[in-house]
Design a binder for these strands. Structure first.
Lengths: 264, 264
DNA sequence: TTTTGTGAATCCTTTCACAGCG
DNA sequence: CGCTGTGAAAGGATTCACAAAA
């Protein structure tokens, strides 16, 4: 069940002058930590596997085969096995993987064994929704700080956290040990906010603003861009209908107004 | 041009695996479109280029070099030129690309020359924020319908659109010519909702629910998964503890940012 | 000269397919 | 047997680097 069909693999872009490549650090002989390769594409999938695994745990399942886990995660089983072998997992041939053990291994690899304080900047429409979403804290990402520039918002409390002025980003993030910053501001404010976060020591940023953020090497930026997603879907719609207007039975002039398509 | 490529059998009648690859399309040639492959990775970047281009248009810029456009989009200039050559663009050597013309070409490729009616299902925390976000309509994606199961929400109006019961998805989407569906429901409701959308003829879906959607071949699903994004960042935070803090002037490899996914 | 367009090399992922362990 | 782990093959995507056009 749940065999997926058209999900896309990851993509990347962003970051001027350096595209990412991998995730391992350019380590210098650190005797302590064995250098692990773990491809970026694999990391993203591990999070998906983890979701399925926790679900299986709740169901009390003891083991899973790569085939089943892969199907539930919407990927090829060979890919899943390779992903798991990369993080040093060990399944049992002829049996499968131990659910609880694998869950622990994936969590450890993703660094989920301890919480990561998050700072959310921009409590507008989307930001407010994100702050109000309880899933953050539950999944190990406590929202330690909220920021905005709007005087009407600064001072208010959302989900138990007070909104502070963006000018306090530096001091507050450093003081509360924020390691992940979420930018949900309008595009023009994103870069300055990003700079402030980086200056405060934040090395991982999730950007919801429709703009490309420039960051120094060593800072990881992931982007969630609604416009891009919609436009990619638009491309597919256009592909399947060609250029001819969709000839669906009974269009009968319903809703869709003929506006101009200005994507900006 | 186009065609040839002896290595690709391109036809996989049996294989159910079609995910990702590319998005080739039987073009219809309306003005400048010939049947072209257009890699999936390229499509996603075109949307980013478009944003920069419209910005340049507003500034009254007449031309841009691949170097400048690439820098603003956060990509390598060679990649940008290759992307543009794939959609059949034509810059002028020694000069650059005509901003308005290129903008039109990119919009045409992405199918943005006409609006795509969108149906948003799930008007909860996130869904409400999305519905309230005016960017949709402005960018050519008018929200033609809103759905939810909550009796308290059904009947209310958000941003000028009435919220209807999910049971009406089939009828309403077909009647209003919805081509893109946005799923912002809790995980358990996502699959049924997805099925309803597909049954209504929707072939492109943006999924914000933290679950893998199973869809028949021909339906494109893109996922925005907040949990995955946060966990990938967590991985990077954890990584940083094993490597040398600083003292590294040389960049060599740095983080990249896979685009894609996640929510809730 | 400047800047595009693009073959060719390189790198990253995915998929195949099978050896081998339980 | 069933199922994992993985070398090897196959694709894609990115980058290089340079010839050609304006």
């Amino acid at each position: 069940m749940t065999v997926d069909r058209g999900t896309r693999p990851s993509r990347r872009a962003v970051s001027p002058t350096r595209s990412s490549g991998e995730v391992r650090g350019p380590g210098d002989a650190t005797a302590d930590d064995a250098a692990r390769p773990v491809p970026g594409a694999t990391v993203a999938r591990l999070a998906v596997y983890l979701r399925v695994l926790t679900s299986l745990l709740d169901q009390g399942r003891g083991t899973v085969s790569s085939e089943e886990l892969a199907a539930a995660a919407g990927v090829n089983s060979a890919k899943l096995r390779k992903d798991l072998s990369l993080i040093g997992s060990s399944g049992v041939r002829g049996v499968g993987y131990d659910v609880s053990r694998l869950t622990a291994e994936v969590e450890a690899t993703l660094g989920l064994t301890r919480p990561h304080a998050v700072a959310l900047v921009g409590v507008g429409n989307l930001g407010h929704a994100l702050a109000g979403y309880g899933g953050f804290a539950q999944r190990g990402f406590p929202v330690a700080a909220l920021f905005d520039v709007d005087p009407d918002l600064v001072g208010t409390t959302i989900a138990g956290v007070e909104v502070e002025h963006v000018d306090a980003i530096g001091a507050v993030c450093a003081a509360r040990g924020v390691t992940i910053g979420v930018v949900a501001t309008p595009a023009p404010a994103a870069q300055p906010v990003c700079d402030a976060l980086v200056a405060a020591g934040v090395r991982s940023i999730l950007n919801f603003a429709p703009t490309v953020l420039a960051v120094p090497a060593g800072v990881e930026v992931r982007k969630v861009d609604l416009a891009v997603e919609m436009q990619v879907l638009s491309f597919h719609v256009a592909r399947r209908h060609g250029t001819v207007p969709a000839a669906r039975p009974s269009p009968s002039t319903a809703g869709a107004a003929p506006r101009e398509a200005v994507t900006r």
